[in-house]
Design a protein around this nucleic acid. Structure first.
Length: 831
RNA sequence: GGGGCCGUAGCCCAGCAGGUAGAGGCACACGACUUAGGAUCGUGCCAGUGCGGGUUCGAAUCCCGUCGGCCCUACCA
């Protein structure tokens, strides 16, 4: 439409596609979001990282939300004039690429790098304020070389080692998995039921860091979501207790058990060994061999899920042997059972049925004795079937009799220690991180196995150990051993130590190794002498704000914390926690369910962008609710977002047409000026509190106020209107970058609106001349008074008592008390 | 079995260091402008905060219990 004579043409709506093309080109040319390395740059630095994507295809709704949210935070920092490092990279090793290569008879790199290009273009279109000069891909030899270098350092420090173990095996992906990658007995990636296999595998000794991983969480308190901290605490599972050594008849070495209740030692009436532990096999007496073998077969048939059902009846078998209680010399029978886990503690327990429900269930099933040793005042467990675990007084416990549970624990630990039959200890649920994988598309483990020298790390100067490029298609099919084993010319090498014939390790690393330190690489992505430049990391790190999904609450976040601590110990970084603050965005769902092909409820990001434009889609996902909550696409409306953006655009363009940039707002309409500055204050507050949806609501209010000022108030030429329109452009730049840039330019400014233009509200315009005071009688609102904000309590009280409405309301009743909270409330208590 | 989070208008959500239940949006209804409008503008409608107790002058906000939904964890000795 054409505006009235003398004014510039003002259109009703903007052309999203045109703005996107225009500003994308402008950003590509001017790079306004590139971090500065200039040491003399006085701006405070800030380091904002989004969890880097896996290149599975094009970006989807989930990325749209996560990156829109991360970008709000980054853009706010840009707006405040900080020197922001907001990089991007790709987590580009992993199984899907390999599976795609097998299917298409190609190389995983082809699929991977094509997808990366697609995603990179989408990120650009999506207007994320990224520093493209620091882009990295973990599947580049220039990157994974440093995985190998770090592995070698870990190996030298004894933090990377090989051992035999019964490991998790995914029959579908044909590879082992870390404990963290097994969710409810299933493969975290493909959902196949995980099996157990005895294999020799590489591990990182994360258990050495259990205490620090736990203790350092104190500094994350309040900065990370509480539930993530809780999940990590539970995962590490520290428990204080004691090791107790039980002599077992016919065995030279005693068998150690871990218990959190050493005070109940006198109540141990039997002894249980995990049925699947080698120890059970060893302890089994010849006459019980047959029964034991039968039981083992029976247990082996159960899946982990069946086995872990708490509803299940207890099962087990007597091994025909006796253990000796170190404190009273009592002989107690040794059983094997599957309720004792082979890989927790020592794989064996002392059973105290009176005070442990599981032991009691077992005792009742097999008619074993139950002896109360802590008198808690509750019913006898042998009768009630309920074990007692509360506070109480010790009985039937020899020298411990009469002590409380709390006093007995240290006492018995001392006694055990004196006699050398036990000691206080701490046990963890956390196990070492199994890092080898029998698949191709990952970082080769830089170890050479030499018949003479053993495990020899590949010398640093020979890194990277590149993946052979002659394997493709069917060569990569999973066969239970790494596809690399088939590449004879790759596998067979000379030992770096003795130069004799040797073989490369053919496993590749878990891709979580790649993501455990990538954020550090962003500080010096092209460095070819070290994984990262310690000086640069010292300037940028740690990451100020990390943004990503809660699905990594344990896996990636725990591993990254571990790596950071190891790097700290190596003197390579000066901090011990990688991510100062963490935000977990919710999921985008549709009609109450996760989007999926089978449900047919998927929402295509590209289509939404074509329909409504990038800004409207971004605004929609951020406005939908608090960032950590899920968004149901059925509840939101990008059409409404577009409507609002059009209004904002119109306001900016009308203001631009009616006044000149640089106009002094001081003479402008006071009411609108107040609204503008209140909005600036509230948007700032909301953004800092990460309530981005609220921040947008505040901008909406300002747009409405400005629109009304133009249409029915002082008119578009009023200086306050320009001030308001500029505030709209600046605040909107966090959420709708294209419209904001365009509006800013229309308003006569050059350079990106997003950089350095955030405004501080004028405090003089924030003070209120009068406030509404509510007068209550018996807590019910009876009158409202307009009063000065600095009215005194006495004055307000007499004003309130003088009100006719209030007097009528009090009537005959007596005033008992007057509560005054000046200037907003008076409550008159009557009786 | 253990632990956590969340229940506020028809819907999505604000408000929560206790003090007038509503900022914003969707939907709906009516009206204005219009040849028309699924455009624009205006007006309106709607809950007493899942339920029951407690603390308090005063509770959506704090505490206890309970119901419902979601998530995590699960024989960890």
């Amino acid at each position: 439409m054409t505006a009235v004579s003398g004014e510039q043409a003002v259109s009703d709506s903007y052309d999203a596609r045109a703005l996107q093309d225009k500003w994308q080109a402008r950003w590509a040319e001017e790079n306004p979001f590139t971090a500065s390395e200039d040491p003399s740059d006085p701006r405070p630095r800030s380091f904002i990282v989004d969890m880097f994507p896996y290149p599975s295809g094009d970006l989807h709704m989930g990325h749209a939300e996560a990156f829109a949210i991360g970008d709000v935070i980054a853009r706010y920092r840009f707006g405040r004039g900080e020197n922001v490092l907001h990089p991007i990279g790709w987590d580009s090793f992993g199984l899907p690429a390999e599976n795609a290569a097998i299917k298409r008879d190609s190389h995983p790199a082809e699929w991977t790098y094509a997808n990366i290009e697609t995603q990179a273009e989408s990120f650009k279109r999506y207007g994320i304020a990224l520093d493209w000069s620091r882009r990295l891909h973990t599947s580049d030899p220039e990157y994974y070389r440093w995985n190998q270098w770090l592995f070698t350092r870990f190996f030298e420090r004894g933090l990377a080692y090989r051992k035999d173990g019964r490991v998790n095996w995914c029959p579908n992906d044909q590879t082992v998995l870390a404990n963290e990658q097994v969710v409810q007995g299933k493969c975290e990636r493909c959902g196949a039921e995980v099996e157990r296999r005895a294999l020799n595998q590489w591990y990182f000794k994360i258990t050495d860091y259990a205490d620090r991983l736990l203790d350092d969480m104190r500094e994350l308190e309040g900065k990370w979501p509480e539930r993530v901290l809780l999940m990590q605490r539970n995962w590490i599972g520290r428990s204080q207790g004691a090791d107790v050594h039980f002599a077992v008849e016919g065995r030279d070495e005693p068998v150690t058990v871990f218990t959190t209740r050493p005070d109940t030692l006198y109540g141990a009436t039997f002894f249980v060994v995990a049925a699947d532990a080698p120890l059970a096999e060893e302890l089994c007496a010849p006459e019980q061999r047959e029964a034991f073998e039968a039981y083992r077969v029976q247990v082996g048939r159960l899946t982990d899920i069946e086995r872990q059902s708490t509803e299940r009846e207890k099962t087990g078998v007597f091994l025909g042997r006796y253990a000796v209680n170190p404190v009273n010399g009592e002989r107690i029978p040794v059983w094997a059972a599957d309720y004792v886990l082979a890989d927790y503690g020592h794989g064996a327990i002392m059973a105290v049925p009176a005070h442990d429900q599981r032991d009691l269930d077992f005792a009742r099933t097999f008619d074993l004795p139950v002896r109360v040793v802590v008198e808690t005042g509750e019913a006898d467990p042998a009768e009630s079937g309920t074990a007692t675990a509360g506070e109480g007084t010790l009985v039937n416990s020899g020298p411990l009799d009469g002590l409380t549970k709390t006093d007995a624990i240290p006492r018995i630990v001392d006694v055990l220690a004196e006699r050398g039959t036990g000691e206080g200890t701490v046990n963890y649920r956390l196990r070492d991180w199994l890092l080898s994988r029998q698949r191709f598309w990952g970082t080769p483990i830089p170890i050479i196995h030499c018949p003479g020298c053993g495990e020899v790390p590949v010398p640093d100067e020979d890194l990277p150990v590149r993946l052979p490029d002659n394997l493709r298609g069917a060569d990569l099919a999973p066969k239970g051993v790494s596809p690399l084993a088939a590449a004879a010319d790759w596998v067979n090498v000379d030992c770096p130590r003795c130069a004799g014939p040797a073989k490369r390790d053919t496993d590749t690393m878990d891709t979580f190794v790649d993501s455990s330190w990538y954020y550090l690489r962003y500080c010096s992505p092209d460095l070819d002498t070290a994984p990262f430049d310690a000086g640069q990391v010292g300037k940028w790190g740690p990451v100020d704000q990390y943004v990503g999904g809660v699905e990594h609450a344990i896996l990636h976040l725990l591993y990254s914390r571990f790596f950071t601590k190891v790097l700290y110990d190596m003197g390579m970084v000066s901090f011990t926690e990688p991510f100062t603050r963490l935000l977990n965005q919710g999921q985008v769902i549709n009609q109450g369910k996760a989007m999926s092909k089978s449900l047919g409820n998927g929402v295509d990001l590209g289509k939404e962008i074509d329909l409504y434009g990038v800004d409207a889609v971004r605004l929609t996902v951020v406005f939908a609710g608090p960032p950590e909550e899920d968004i149901d696409w059925a509840d939101v409306s990008p059409a409404a977002s577009l409507k609002f953006l059009n209004r904002a655009y119109r306001v900016m363009s009308q203001a631009a047409a009616a006044s000149e940039p640089g106009t002094d707002p001081a003479s402008g309409d006071l009411e609108l000026r107040r609204a503008t500055h209140r909005t600036l204050a509230k948007v700032t507050e909301a953004v800092e509190a990460q309530r981005f949806n609220v921040a947008i609501a505040r901008i909406m209010e300002l747009v409405t106020a400005t629109r009304k000022a133009i249409e029915t108030g002082p008119g578009a030429a009023d200086p306050a209107v320009r001030e308001a329109a500029e505030a709209v452009a600046v605040t909107l730049s966090l959420f709708a970058p294209y419209v904001a840039e365009e509006g800013w330019e229309l308003l006569g400014h050059t350079g990106s609106v997003a950089v350095g233009n955030w405004r501080v509200p004028d405090p003089a315009l924030l003070v209120q001349e009068t406030v509404t005071c509510v007068v209550q009688v018996a807590s019910k609102v009876r009158d409202k008074l307009e009063v000065s904000p600095d009215i005194s309590a006495e004055e307000l009280e007499s004003l309130a008592l003088a009100s006719e409405k209030v007097r009528n309301s009090i009537g005959e009743r007596q005033v008992r008390k007057v509560v005054v909270r000046q200037p907003k409330l008076v409550n008159i208590v009557v009786g």
